[in-house]
């Protein structure tokens, strides 16, 4: 069951990745576009493919996988289908870092200033959360600390917007926060990939511990799960992935919440199988959404995060309705 699903999702990611490379305003013919990408035989086309479309497609995969996997891990640890990667406050704090970079003009000074500021925000959030919910705290403390950090980051973001000297800075900030993969370069890919890769390796290795947690914390500990260590690993892994994803793409909601929820029945609800499946499912969802924003309104700059929320929220409502009808919620 798990293996077939993973294979299917992999094929879907590959297909959508190719489709993402072939969609764009330059209107290149598919064969010409791919040959330009691979052989570098046409100057303008190669530039478009290698510098614009390739990083965009890679980032869609990375960001989607990060959000999907982080969501599945959070849900597995908290044993709650409503948990999502933003719950520990990392995405809010990363957004605050980015907003500060935009506000102070650092973002305009250097291309990496914004992602680095966002990552610093994420790291700061992790330090606060670990100080509050550190090795002894339970999962409730973790949730409460996350909510407090999120609220503080949100308030500070509002403060920056509030005090913004001119409407252009404010609108730039608002647009950035909607989340997008437009105009990203390979530099963004190289920045995000190590953090997301590291987080993925760390979280995927915890599958069995999340399985054991199906029976509750007491039973899991008695089966050899070191809860404090698992919580630390979870916070660091999720923060590394979501911090990096937010740093390069802005806030993209609902992926981490919806993807594990959709895939759970397909993996027999086993948390360990859900982790890799959700990483692939997240990549599929973000690739699809990023293709859709280019196809639906090619002339307007429709933001990726807006689309995922507009599609994700009703989908989530539908899922809740369906689950309730089956009497499982």
């Amino acid at each position: 069951m798990g293996r077939g699903l993973v294979a299917g999702l992999l094929a879907l990611v590959a297909g959508l990745f190719a489709a993402s490379l072939l969609v764009g305003p330059a209107g290149l013919a598919p064969v010409q576009a791919l040959s330009a990408l691979i052989w570098g035989d046409a100057l303008a086309e190669t530039l478009v493919m290698r510098e614009i479309r390739l990083p965009r497609a890679i980032l869609a995969v990375l960001v989607g996988a990060a959000l999907g996997l982080a969501g599945a891990a959070m849900q597995g640890y908290l044993r709650n289908p409503l948990a999502e990667p933003g719950l520990i406050g990392v995405s809010g704090s990363a957004a605050l870092g980015a907003v500060l970079a935009l506000q102070t003009g650092l973002a305009a000074a250097h291309v990496l200033a914004l992602p680095f500021a966002a990552l610093s925000g994420a790291v700061l959030a992790v330090l606060i959360i670990l100080a509050l919910a550190g090795p002894r705290g339970g999962s409730i403390t973790l949730i409460l600390a996350g909510i407090a950090v999120s609220a503080l980051a949100g308030a500070l973001t509002s403060l920056v917007l509030n005090l913004s000297p001119n409407p252009f800075a404010a609108s730039e900030i608002v647009f950035w926060m909607m989340g997008s993969l437009q105009d990203r370069s390979m530099t963004h890919v190289w920045l995000a990939a190590p953090f997301i890769g590291l987080g993925a390796v760390v979280l995927l290795a915890q599958g069995r511990k999340f399985d054991a947690l199906t029976l509750g914390e007491d039973a899991a500990v008695s089966m050899g799960v070191h809860l404090g260590r698992l919580r630390l690993t979870l916070v660091l892994g999720v923060a590394s992935m979501v911090g990096a994803a937010t740093a390069v793409a802005g806030a993209i909601g609902f992926v981490g919440l919806v993807v594990p929820h959709i895939l759970r029945p397909l993996v027999g609800a086993r948390p360990s199988v859900l982790l890799p499946a959700s990483a692939l499912g997240g990549a599929v969802l973000v690739l699809m959404a990023d293709i859709a924003v280019r196809v639906i309104l090619p002339t307007r700059d429709l933001k990726l995060g807006v689309l995922t929320a507009i599609v994700g929220a009703p989908l989530f409502l539908h899922l809740i309705y369906k689950t309730r009808a089956q009497g499982q919620l």
């Binding site: 044993r79 199906t214 509750g216 039973a219 759970r264 029945p265 609800a269 086993r270 499982q328």
Partner: peptide, 11 residues
């Protein structure tokens, strides 16, 4: 076997 009979997911 704890007293709280927790089964978190529909496995």
């Amino acid at each position: 076997l704890p007293q709280a009979r927790e089964i978190a997911w529909p496995v």
